[in-house]
């Protein structure tokens, strides 16, 4: 279940269909409520469901797991994986683990920042892309690597950024879902 949660990619819009998602969340809460260490998997799944972790959802989780809201907030703010802001349709994660960093990950990150005019943690105004930094995907042989939702792009060069992103714009124009 935890592995499932991690692989659920963000499909968020700024608003969410709260009814269905809350019903699903309650099922998850019932399963994890009494499990030690249940908070993190619940947060992961909730983020998968809602695309991010809205305040309302966090309070719901705190109440139902009988945990202080301050503690839930403490866990959410500790891990960079969790986001309390709505994210773009595509979340770009730039690996800055040792191998990727050495092979130019930082320059790749700068190129994306420039291309999308956003900083790390921000979302483009068209809500299409969010930019995040990650520490090692376990794909060091492909360094420098970036992930856009579930797609891993390998041996990325700053000069290739435009081309990579354009394929997402193209899918968007054609009304298709990118893999």
């Amino acid at each position: 279940m935890i592995d499932d949660a991690i692989s659920i990619s963000c499909t968020c819009e700024e608003t969410y269909d709260s009814n269905t998602q809350f019903i699903k969340l309650d099922e998850i809460l019932a399963e994890y409520k009494y499990k030690d260490g249940g908070l993190i998997p619940v947060l992961q799944i909730a983020q998968g469901l809602f695309g991010y972790l809205p305040d309302e959802v966090l309070r719901h989780i705190a109440k139902n797991m009988d945990k202080p809201y301050s503690e839930v907030a403490g866990v959410v703010s500790f891990y960079s994986f969790f986001s309390t802001q709505p994210r773009g349709k595509y979340v770009i994660k730039v690996c800055l683990g040792t191998a990727c960093y050495v092979r130019g990950g930082k320059q790749v990150l700068d190129a994306i920042k420039k291309e999308l005019a956003v900083d790390v943690g921000e979302t483009t105004t068209d809500k299409l892309f969010s930019l995040e930094v990650a520490r090692c995907f376990g794909a060091c042989g492909l360094a420098p690597a970036i992930m856009i939702n579930d797609d891993v792009h390998q041996r990325v060069k700053p000069t290739r950024i435009k081309q990579i992103l354009s394929s997402y714009y193209k899918f968007e124009e054609e009304g298709l879902d990118h893999a």
């Binding site: 202080p68 403490g74 703010s77």
Partner: peptide, 25 residues
């Protein structure tokens, strides 16, 4: 706040140098 008073208004937020002890977020 948490163990003696069961109020839990305060908890460590964020991480590393940015850690702040206080209410949620």
């Amino acid at each position: 706040c948490t163990e003696m008073q069961s109020v839990s208004a305060l908890f460590p937020q964020s991480r590393g140098f940015k850690t702040i002890i206080g209410p949620a977020f």
